[in-house]
């Protein structure tokens, strides 16, 4: 019996020894946090070479600001400044008490959009709201659809197409100004509703190793006809700098279609798909890890250019007129 107890003791001992094998948890210190954040950006962020960012120099310059006695607020500020240099709306650090970001891609630019003018003078009182789509007829000749977020549903687009096909309008204005993105699937589906054949929507490469240019071969994403209702009439898409992420993808895909004209300002970009990482202190780092191009290989991280560049005229704003919509009408 004594032997049996010894056997069991050995068994239980060996049954619970994962602490010997498990990777030791990094201690939550500013030094460890700094090293981890620096390493993740250096080895996994996808745009260092495209934006010509010397990350090692940035790390070196900030390393001396880090010590284990500093406050969390000062620590956060160091990382905030480091990440700001990446000029990427998909790079953020969330600490709970603050959220680091670089939104200069639209804050330093003309807005070219006033929601009050759209709602009061174009959509009016009796527009329809179909999922995330607000739509109406302008001047009995043009369909106008405002889509403010790709996080909102777009499944009623078939209904919208059918409605305006029946009304015999000249064309459709799809307004995605101030649409900061959302679900890429919604962007792909929305674009698929306007294509008549299967075409390449965009191409994507993934980081597969630590080197700055260590990427996979390009993967193509296709859009193909979707929905029961066909759309043959002209399409005008209105854009501004605040179009970002999934919205840039949507415009990139739509520009492949022959009946599409993009009017407005270049988008803010945001072509890298972001992922998250938890630092040793629990702060959450978000960073881009892919690179995307249009079907011809043009990277749109820094924005998608319009076919016709148009800016809102200050005098029009005073009169309650949206310059871009008026130009769009002239082009339909």
């Amino acid at each position: 019996m004594k032997n049996l107890i010894s056997y069991i003791a050995v068994i239980v001992l060996f049954s619970s020894c994962e602490k010997v094998f498990m990777e030791k948890e990094l201690e939550s210190t500013p030094t460890n946090n700094f090293n981890k954040l620096s390493e993740i950006i250096k080895t996994k962020y996808s745009y260092l070479s495209l934006k010509n960012i010397k990350w090692d120099s940035i790390v070196e310059a900030n390393e001396k600001l880090i010590n284990n006695d500093m406050s969390v607020f000062k620590e956060f500020e160091v990382y905030n400044k480091m990440l700001y240099t990446l000029k990427d709306g998909h790079v953020n650090l969330s600490s709970g008490f603050n959220y680091s970001r670089n939104w200069s891609w639209y804050l330093n630019e003309k807005p070219n959009f006033d929601n009050n003018i759209i709602e009061r003078n174009y959509l009016g009182n009796d527009y329809e709201i179909s999922g995330g789509l607000k739509h109406t007829t302008l001047d009995d000749m043009y369909a106008y659809v405002y889509y403010g977020s790709f996080s909102s549903g777009m499944s009623y687009i078939d209904y919208v197409k059918a409605k305006y096909n029946k009304e015999g309008i000249r064309g459709i204005i799809i307004d995605v100004r101030n649409n900061g993105g959302g679900s890429l699937k919604n962007a792909e589906d929305f674009a698929s509703h306007f294509t008549h054949k299967k075409i390449i929507g965009y191409k994507q490469v993934y980081k597969i190793g630590k080197g700055e240019n260590n990427f996979s071969a390009p993967y193509s994403t296709y859009i193909e006809p979707m929905g029961e209702e066909k759309w043959d009439k002209p399409i005008i898409i209105l854009t501004n700098k605040q179009c970002y992420s999934a919205t840039s993808f949507f415009i990139t895909m739509m520009k492949e279609l022959p009946n599409v004209t993009v009017i407005g300002d270049a988008t803010g970009g945001g072509a890298g798909l972001p992922v998250d990482y938890t630092l040793p202190n629990g702060w959450q780092l978000r960073y881009s890890t892919t690179r995307c191009t249009d079907a011809r290989g043009v990277d749109f991280e820094l924005g998608v250019s319009p076919d016709i560049k148009v800016e809102q005229i200050d005098g029009d704003s005073a009169k309650g007129i949206d310059t871009l919509i008026e130009i769009a009408k002239l082009n339909l």
Partner: peptide
């Protein structure tokens, strides 16, 4: 994959 967790992608 190395830095991509998108389950739907064959990466």
């Amino acid at each position: 994959g190395y830095s991509v967790n998108f389950i739907e992608n064959s990466i």
